[in-house]
């Protein structure tokens, strides 16, 4: 099912690209400020240092549906590539009703292969770190995310879109740590509305 949806999205994008990509809308130096807000689905936990423990997916992670919000600023360094940064906040409650917060601070690179002036399809990669807090535990984790966002610009400057993606964080413990087996990768799936201002 997931593969089918992904395949359809890629096909739609590829089909649209030749039509829209004949000319680009953005110029080097253009800037985009965007804010996002939406929901955050649990994705997976993988305890890669503990072979006895199988990976847990979606609700089996024992996380509930949460929320996601962010602000981002980017500048175009070419006609299709924008660079900048993003500050985000994500939260989920566990089934014990304890709050998990993830605060990523990242560099953000966005590729906009489809851009008509009215309609964009953007793909983003974020890299950086995230403050993670749960119960009495705190951690600063490496962080990466990928996202796909089609947007419609209803004025020259303002646009509204939907973004879906995968947030990936990791919890590393050394071989000598008694928490070694707790080393994990965690995935969360934010789906947000994106409000963009460009000039």
């Amino acid at each position: 099912m997931k593969r089918a949806i992904l395949a359809i999205l890629i096909l739609v994008m590829l089909a649209a690209a030749p039509v829209f990509a004949r000319s680009t809308y953005y110029f080097t130096g253009d800037q985009v400020f965007s804010i996002r807000a939406g929901v955050n689905f649990p994705g997976f936990f993988t305890f890669y240092k503990n072979p006895e423990r199988p990976s847990q997916f979606f609700w089996n992670t024992h996380l509930k549906l949460g929320g996601f919000a962010s602000i981002a600023y980017q500048g175009y360094v070419s006609e299709t590539l924008a660079l900048g940064g993003e500050l985000s906040y994500a939260f989920n409650y566990s089934r014990s009703d304890i709050l998990l917060t993830t605060v990523p601070m990242t560099a953000k690179i966005t590729w906009v292969p489809v851009q008509t002036g009215k309609f964009d399809i953007a793909m983003s990669l974020n890299l950086g770190g995230a403050f993670i807090r749960y119960n009495e535990g705190k951690f600063f984790a490496p962080y990466a995310s990928v996202a796909l966002a089609p947007s419609f610009f209803f004025t020259e400057n303002w646009g509204l879109g939907v973004e879906g993606g995968l947030m990936l964080t990791a919890e590393f413990y050394t071989k000598n740590s008694n928490k070694n087996k707790a080393s994990a990768f965690a995935g969360l799936l934010p789906v947000t509305m994106v409000l963009s201002y460009r000039h």
């Binding site: 936990f45 998990l100 749960y134 535990g137 705190k138 919890e171």
Partner: peptide
């Protein structure tokens, strides 16, 4: 972290 955060959630 005090203990593995993700394992604690799981």
């Amino acid at each position: 972290a005090t203990d593995g955060i993700y394992s604690e959630i799981a």
